[in-house]
Design a protein around this nucleic acid. Sequence first.
DNA 1: CTGCCACTTCAAGTCAACTTGAGGTCAACA
DNA 2: TGTTGACCTCAAGTTGACTTGAAGTGGCAG
Lengths: 136, 136
Amino acid sequence: MKLLDIGVLSKQSGVPPSTLRYYEEIGLIQSVARNGLRRQFDPPVATQLALISLGKLAGFSLEDIKRMFAKDGSPDLPRAELHERADALDEQIKGLTRLRDALRHVADCPAETHMECPKFKRLVQFAARSASGRTR
Amino acid sequence: MKLLDIGVLSKQSGVPPSTLRYYEEIGLIQSVARNGLRRQFDPPVATQLALISLGKLAGFSLEDIKRMFAKDGSPDLPRAELHERADALDEQIKGLTRLRDALRHVADCPAETHMECPKFKRLVQFAARSASGRTR
DNA sequence: CTGCCACTTCAAGTCAACTTGAGGTCAACA
DNA sequence: TGTTGACCTCAAGTTGACTTGAAGTGGCAG
């Protein structure tokens, strides 16, 4: 199997080498060899990095993410918890969707006073409610 | 108009008083009066707080959020930028949706080796791609 | 064989977003 | 009138996620 030099992986993934080293230090990813000094990674690490960036996007801490995946990078949670996470994501998606709708409403609504606009308030309160099943 | 004591607002919104003071310090919200020592807030601040928590959920920094809203808390961006933000949210929602789908797939897929499963990889790579229009 | 450059380690620094602690104040209740 | 409790200020501490800097190394290009 062809290995990826840290520099190559970094370029490919957009993640700086310092961050890759940091991720390895905290056990989030693993290098499998060295070429001289240089870390070499298995290609699937690229998928892992994609997963990590998604996890961050979803607001998970690196610790959370670490707990969600085995060292080979494949998800490592009991079925039930996976569904729980997925459900939580659904909630979050709902919140973001309503925030988006609120922004679009504001862009199109001629009213001066959005804080008083019932439609706006409804959108925001609703959105915040579904958002309050918190992650961070 | 009835004002809210910081303690009341805190209880109502779930945001600790220390955080409310901090938010005021950085100019994100404003108290309008004091009762003795105690800060008093206008009720619409509650809506502002909802908006702030949504913004954080979406991965915006407090600085970003501050720039997006006028001091009265109503969104304060040119129309075009509002649409841009909304579009960015759409991208983020797509990413999260695919992450969710990936998690559900894993929960239901009997394969041992998700990192090799083409469906899983496809979901993740796709998701990461739409996520890379970055926010933070 | 000599540079060069991207890597290496390790410690320390940075930034955002809060929280905590010390020492003080006020109003309301017993 | 005195005590209580929730607030006040201001400075310093904390946590997570990195980045930066100093001092060193290894392989490849010329």
